[in-house]
Amino acid sequence: MTRAFVALGGNLGDTRAALRKALDALDALPHTRLVAHSRFYRTPPWGLREQPPFLNAVAALETALGPHALLDALLGIERAAGRVRDGERWGPRTLDLDLLHVDGVVLEDQRLTLPHPRIAERAFVLLPLAELAPDLELPGQGRVEALLAAVDHAGCVVEP
């Protein structure tokens, strides 16, 4: 079993329910168990600013799935939640699942880059990830706690 971290987010519909359902779906994946998840954070939109705020979290998994099989499973969970990938980046969505990091894996191919190449830019990922693994060293990027200290996380608030 390998530890993996997945970012969850969305800003359309009942986002809280969608994230909870996604956490259940992650825990139900074959050869995988949900070890922990962060609190939910209400965050301003990133990229396209003219859209509703997002709800974000991070899940820690123990899995025997390889990175590409895990990615395929994440895409399946998104589709089941009504996510349509139409090529628009950073737009509104019912559910977004991003594979952030898999312990011991550095990978870059046409489908997947690990660790996720934009973690260090995104407070909406770093805040919940730091709850679970502040000392995690992301190859080529640095330690999560230090990365979080270097980004502006104004406007990101814990959801009650």
Rank of each mutant, 00 (worst) to 15 (best):
I77W: 03
H68A: 12
S38M: 01
P44S: 04
L70E: 07
A73E: 04
R85S: 10
G87Y: 06
G87P: 04
A60C: 15
G47T: 04
G91L: 07
Y41W: 14
G76I: 06
G47L: 04
P53V: 06
L74N: 02
R49K: 15
L55R: 03
G91E: 04
P53Y: 04
L65E: 09
E62R: 13
P44I: 05
L55G: 02
P52R: 13
F40G: 04
L61E: 03
L75T: 02
G82A: 11
R89C: 08
L55F: 10
R83L: 10
R93A: 03
L95C: 03
A59H: 12
N56L: 12
F40Q: 01
H68W: 09
Y41H: 02
L48I: 15
W90E: 03
R79N: 05
L74I: 08
T63H: 08
E78N: 13
Q51L: 06
L55T: 11
L48W: 11
A59R: 13
A57V: 05
P52M: 11
N56R: 05
R89M: 08
T43E: 01
E88P: 00
Y41R: 03
L61C: 10
T63N: 10
A81R: 07
R83M: 11
E50D: 15
G87S: 07
I77V: 14
H37L: 00
Q51V: 06
S38Q: 07
A80S: 09
A64H: 14
G87D: 08
G91A: 14
D72C: 05
G66E: 15
P67Q: 12
F40V: 09
W90T: 06
P92F: 08
Q51Y: 06
F40K: 03
R93C: 02
S38P: 03
